[in-house]
Design a protein around this nucleic acid. Sequence first.
DNA 1: TTGTCCTATATGTACTACATATAACCAAAT
DNA 2: ATTTGGTTATATGTAGTACATATAGGACAA
Lengths: 227, 227
Amino acid sequence: MAINDLKKDLAPITSNTMADIVEVRIREYLKRMSLKPGDSLPKETDLAEALGVSRNVVREALSRLRMLGMVETRKRKGMVLASPDILQAFERVLDPLIIDDATLKDIFELRLVLEMGLADLLYARKTDKDIEELEAIANSEIDKDKFFLIKNEIAFHGKLYEMTGNTTLRRFQIMLMPVFAYVTALVDKPKSGKIDHRGLVDILKNGTKENFKKGMYEHLRPHFDHL
Amino acid sequence: MAINDLKKDLAPITSNTMADIVEVRIREYLKRMSLKPGDSLPKETDLAEALGVSRNVVREALSRLRMLGMVETRKRKGMVLASPDILQAFERVLDPLIIDDATLKDIFELRLVLEMGLADLLYARKTDKDIEELEAIANSEIDKDKFFLIKNEIAFHGKLYEMTGNTTLRRFQIMLMPVFAYVTALVDKPKSGKIDHRGLVDILKNGTKENFKKGMYEHLRPHFDHL
DNA sequence: TTGTCCTATATGTACTACATATAACCAAAT
DNA sequence: ATTTGGTTATATGTAGTACATATAGGACAA
């Protein structure tokens, strides 16, 4: 028991490896030089010599930056700074099975927040064609088995995000989905608010933004009640 | 000009290096074995032999997983699976200067969506003490210079996120802040909606959740109008 | 401008070697 | 029985060498 109390006060010593340090140093270097995408970087051997470490270490650090999409390396040319895909790194880590429960809960709530905040973008950008498609999804739900419904649930909410015209947001949602599914499966209450998908489509067609916000809240209500 | 158009449609061929492949293979391995945090993994030399690559390559792959916090390596013991900090990877990449414009715009909107969706969590969790503190921040804004106001803007909205009791959300906001600041600085319209911080506090004290949502929309309105 | 050949060179990969921290084991001590 | 201390085997951390390979860039030709 006392050991756990200790752990809170005394964080374990984490000796940074050379690769850790070099990674930071290189990142600092990129920032300090205010390099822009496309600019080329020194070659590995030069970096190694300048930093006073083996090329091995430099490569480990670069391997990380490469994974994040910050730099690209090409034979003979050397390295060039690239525009990283900010969600790429995220995707690799977001496995419900290895995330701790507190974070899992946070992410669950994060999705609720996103979904509640969607309305403004939605009403600014929705088109008749979008709504038609959305309606088709909602209508296909009638008299279907549970498995189909889950698939449709994903399709419907996915379409909503898509309608915002915000690619990053949409990808973000796709990433968060497994977490959401995992958590709801855990709680395993068969949940559906007073307003279903068809209800939301109706509002989208005829109602105001405020109507939609209220509708979405009712739709997600079981989740909110569970907070 | 034509070259840039081409780049969008024809992504350059990216030959996967061994490290890329090994990274995926190890990740698959972790998943397939359904390992839980704390479980130990084979040692580097065994992995290298099993995969038929040099230890070097394995170390590059592991270096990436270590950076993401997925695994921890300890001398003699080998590696153990860890609970990754999902935002850690994010933080490294989220530099407004190296993110492309489209994504920058997406992230800007993402923050708007978050802020609009905050209300439900906020009303579920806010305490009197929170509101007091928030009010103090809002009141300290009177008759201050521009620099102070920017600092205060951050403090105020930060406090809102904090009040949700959602750590991940709060950290997320902290990360998004530089992007938001960068984009607004770019647009450089001195923006402030009809409702200011003190107005929001008033609603939080006496108004309903719906009032708050409308208030927040008005507060952020200049940004929405700019969509 | 387009196509072909050539070459220098930076990355990609493999292998060896050794330092170092430490988990695991055992023994002594309280 | 639990703690303390010393020893050792071992997996990681780092360095260094070597070589294969793709290719940027130049020269030249059509």
